[in-house]
Structures are given as C-alpha cells and as structure tokens.
C-alpha cells in the first residue's frame, strides 16, 4: 500500500481527478467497535478526466463500479485517497461545504422505476432542486423547467403528471432532466440504460450525447454493457474486484487491450451477426467474493495465463504509453 501523497498541484485541465481512492465497508466489528473484517469495494483507483469528456467504467457485478461512482459524489465517505473536483480537494468537505458542490455534480440512477418520488408531479420533481439551489429567480422557475423538459424530449403537458403514468424510457428522461436542472458540470450515469428496451436504449443514449454537446457536460458512465460504453465514451476504465485493471482512451483499449481480463470481456460479448464466429476466451469459474479476494493478482484465479508470480505478488498499475495504464505482470 503506497503512502498517501497529499499534494496540491492539481492538473488545471482536469475537472475530476481521483487519486488512490479507497473505499472499505466494515463487515464485522468487535464490541468496542474495532473493525475486524472489511470489504474493499474500491481499491487504489486513480484517473483524470477533462471537461467535456466521458469516462466509461465497465466491469461485472460486484466489481465496485457503482461504489466508485457514489464515492466520487461523496455519497459514501472515502476511506483513503483524494477526490479533486474542479481544482478543489473535496475529500474532506463536510456536508455544509458539500452543498455548494452538489449542484455541480449529479447522478442518474439505474432504475427509473424506483428513483422517482411517486407522490409528486413531474413539475414538482424538476422544480424542487431548482428552488433549493436558487438556479433561477422564483418567478422564472416554471419557464425554466418547461424549457428543460423540451430539451430532454418531454412534452409540456407532462408537467402535471405523476411518474407512474410514464414508461421506463420517459421516466429515465425525467431522471436526466432532474439531474440537469441544477446545471451540473459532472454527471455520473449509473447504468442509465440497462433497465430499458433496446429501441428505447438508443433514444436515451442519443439524448445523453446530444445534451453533452449542448451543455459541455462531463460524464462518468457506468455500465456492464461494453458496446454501449464504447459508443458513448472517450476514455474507458475496466474494473475487476475493486481495482482498475486497465485504463486508457477508447481507441487504445479497443484496438490494443492489454489486460487478459479486458480481452476476455471483449470476446464474451455476443455478436449480432450469425456469420461472425468469435474466437472466444471463456473464463473458468466465478468472480471471487470481494470480502475475501485472492492473494496476489486478483484475477489470477480465472486468468488463462497466470504464472507463479501472479499468485504471490499484486501487479503494479503502470502506464504503457499514451495514458494507457494496466496492472498485469505479463506485460513486463
């Protein structure tokens, strides 16, 4: 575990920088409150993101992608590391200081069915954050919200309706409008399309892309669907069991995946063309429990090329040129 270096020389270009971020959840405590067993959900994750870019985070369930997203928003307190947002180190901000930051960073949740309050109208849902954060003067709130609804592809007369009257795609549009109502700079999209049908998925992805161009938004796009991530992202991070195993620009990652897990992940996607016969790498076994991760490289239990050193020593996360980082012993 490297010593935590707290420095103040932030990259002025990056809107979001994460350094050695760690998040542990206590599993067992003694009577005195001492933690005896913990689950390392996010382990030593570092990356930089420029304004207007999209970072796609892929990985299987339980790999810590959602926890990473929530920790960046400080919905979970980080256990270690630094989160630098817009030139400010927000890691140790208290809730009062966070209130101003909150309107700059928003989240869109996975399940549009349970993330909208059933008892308020669409108008109510969208105007509340605007009023709380004083985004526009009180008498202009309704116009602002209606304008926002048009932007997100919602009709005017939906203003008086309740969430249960809408389909999944429409609800996700409401969630997007709600996140954008406070004019954020950073939006964390936590699997925004995985609960939707294919034809609706395409509508929502196009909307997200179009809004990004209009409003110069920065996205952290969390998904398990590689083809969606490839479509929307500029940079991609692949996570496995809490740690980032590979990070790089979309081009680098897809043209030249370095980590064996990334390769297996790419080859596992069913290809929508019956003539294409994939040269598939099928991984053996299941993902180990994050509460009890394997020693050494965490991927060695399923890695087709694991060697002795992989079983003993955790590989270092290194830059292999052009910001393309990976953590694997086999890369030398």
């Amino acid at each position: 575990m490297s010593e935590e270096i707290k420095s103040n020389d932030f990259d002025p270009e990056a809107i979001l920088e994460v350094r050695n971020l760690r998040k542990c959840f206590p599993l067992k405590k003694t009577v005195t409150g001492k933690v005896t067993q913990e689950l390392i959900a996010v382990d030593n994750v570092s990356f930089k993101l420029k304004a207007g870019e999209t970072l796609g985070i892929v990985g299987e369930s339980g790999c810590g992608k959602t926890t990473l997203g929530r920790t960046i928003l400080k919905l979970h307190a980080a256990t270690g590391g630094q989160i630098i947002f817009d030139g400010k180190d927000i890691t140790n901000y208290n809730s009062k200081q966070m209130r101003d930051i909150r309107k700059e960073m928003q989240i869109i949740f996975q399940d549009p069915y349970s993330s909208l309050p059933p008892r308020s109208t669409v108008g109510g849902i969208l105007s509340e954050p605007v009023e709380v954060h004083n985004i526009v003067p009180k008498d202009k709130v309704k116009d602002y919200v209606l304008d926002l609804m048009t932007k997100c592809g919602l009709r005017d007369y939906y203003y008086e309706r309740y969430p249960h009257e809408f389909s999944g795609g429409q609800r996700q549009r409401i969630c997007i409008a709600r996140a954008l109502s406070v004019k954020p700079k950073l939006v964390i999209c936590d699997e925004p399309v995985s609960a939707l049908d294919v034809s609706i998925q395409a509508q929502i992805i196009n909307l997200l892309k179009q809004l990004q161009n209009e409003l110069n938004l920065t996205y952290v796009f969390i998904s398990h669907d590689l083809s969606v991530v490839k479509f929307i992202s500029d940079k991609i991070g692949v996570m496995y069991l809490g740690s980032m195993v590979e990070f790089g620009s979309k081009k680098d990652i897809f043209a030249n995946p370095l980590h064996p897990y990334t390769k297996a992940l790419f080859s596992a996607i069913p290809h929508p063309d019956p003539k294409v016969k994939m040269n598939r790498i099928i991984l053996k076994g299941d993902i180990p429990s994050p509460a009890n991760p394997p020693k050494g490289c965490r991927f060695h239990t399923r890695c087709p090329n694991a060697t002795d050193i992989c079983r003993e020593v955790a590989p270092e996360y290194k830059d292999y040129g052009n910001g393309h980082c990976a953590a694997c012993h086999l890369l030398g």
Partner: peptide
C-alpha cells in the same frame, strides 16, 4: 431493421445511434 440498427456494436463508428421513435 430498426432493432438491429439501434443496438450499438463494437465495430460501429457512427456518431448517433439509429433509434425507433415512440413507444410500444
């Protein structure tokens, strides 16, 4: 046709996805 076009694939390079307007 629309269903196939609206699914992003690893090979596709287009800027926007084709989508079928409206709902079921």
């Amino acid at each position: 046709v629309g269903l196939q076009k609206s699914k992003p694939t690893l090979e596709s390079e287009s800027e926007t996805l084709f989508n079928i307007p409206g709902n079921v």
